[in-house]
Simulated assay, not measured.
Amino acid sequence: MDTTELERLAREIRLRDLQAVFESGAGHIGGEMSVIDILTALYFRVLNVWPDQPKHPARDRFVLSKGHTACALYVTLAKRGFIPEEEISTFLQPHSRLNGHPNCNKVPGVETNTGPLGHGLPVSVGMAKAAKLSGAKYHTYVVTGDGEMQEGSNWEAIMAAAQFKLDNLTLVIDHNRFQQGAALADTNDLAPLRPKLEAFDWEVTEINGNKMSEVVPALEHRGSRPHCIVAHTNKGHGISFMQDRVDWHHKVPSKEQYEIALAELSEAL
């Protein structure tokens, strides 16, 4: 897909994500809206994956370390053909396999269970190192939140990736500047992120993570070192009253708010 097609699809995914969160009465809509452009570019342009063979050994690996934004991943997987699109209506319902955090034992296309923050990047380093040991050609991608980068386990993984020279690993930090309950700047402010990653001998690219023309080339980049993309995004992107508001980390829109958001996202299609 070209960037125009990807942008249209990302808007469709945002719309379905909004509906699913509203109907289920739960979710993490702010961070879902910020990461959807990245997920769309990965699954419809960058990743070598086969929905009818989700465990194909040659597939690229993708880990959503910020697992609380699972609904955005489920909608993307459904659009890509991993699960039925009608199954999205079961999100968070009793006995549904679409839980609040991704489960690799239940959902095709999910590589590893995530939710406890600080786990996805270490697991991804293991996946990338396994490819080096076995001679496999797959690439590993992982998306973390910026608040999640406060976890020490991530920095141990970053050191290991540099030591092992994992040029087959791409880390995307969804830098939307907010975490649960507060702005990043008011908790443990890691910004600017770029010099910190560069100090660990990573290659770093900074982009507008909600602009597809910047997202795609950054994800497709290949170098000689582990690659980190610092994706500057907006919490609640695409919905005016949610954007850059900390209370929309896991707030659910009222009926009136839902109608406003629905109209804004539909107008953009």
Rank of each mutant, 00 (worst) to 15 (best):
G181Q: 12
K55P: 03
I13C: 01
F164Y: 13
E198C: 06
I29R: 00
N234W: 14
P108I: 08
H95L: 13
V21C: 06
Q19S: 11
N99M: 15
E214A: 08
S65W: 02
A183V: 09
L39S: 03
K196F: 03
A185Y: 12
P108H: 08
G181V: 12
T90K: 11
A231W: 08
I13Q: 08
A78S: 09
N210M: 09
N99L: 15
K235Q: 12
P116D: 04
D60H: 08
P57N: 10
T90M: 07
D186M: 11
I260N: 04
S240E: 14
F91M: 00
D60K: 05
A130M: 10
M159Q: 13
L193N: 08
I207E: 00
P192Q: 10
L92G: 07
G30D: 03
D17V: 13
W202E: 03
V252A: 01
I239G: 00
G27W: 00
G223W: 06
Q93G: 11
N210A: 04
N154L: 03
T40P: 05
L18Y: 03
K55D: 15
G109A: 07
G236T: 01
A72H: 01
G223L: 07
A185R: 14
Y258I: 04
N99C: 15
R177L: 13
E111S: 10
S254Y: 07
E198L: 02
K255R: 12
I13W: 07
D201N: 14
R11H: 11
G115A: 01
E148N: 06
V21N: 06
D186G: 08
L184H: 04
Q180H: 12
R80Q: 11
L117R: 02
V246G: 05
R97T: 11
P57T: 09
E259Q: 14
S89A: 13
E220K: 15
T144G: 04
E198D: 10
L262Q: 12
V46R: 05
E86T: 14
M127P: 00
H237C: 13
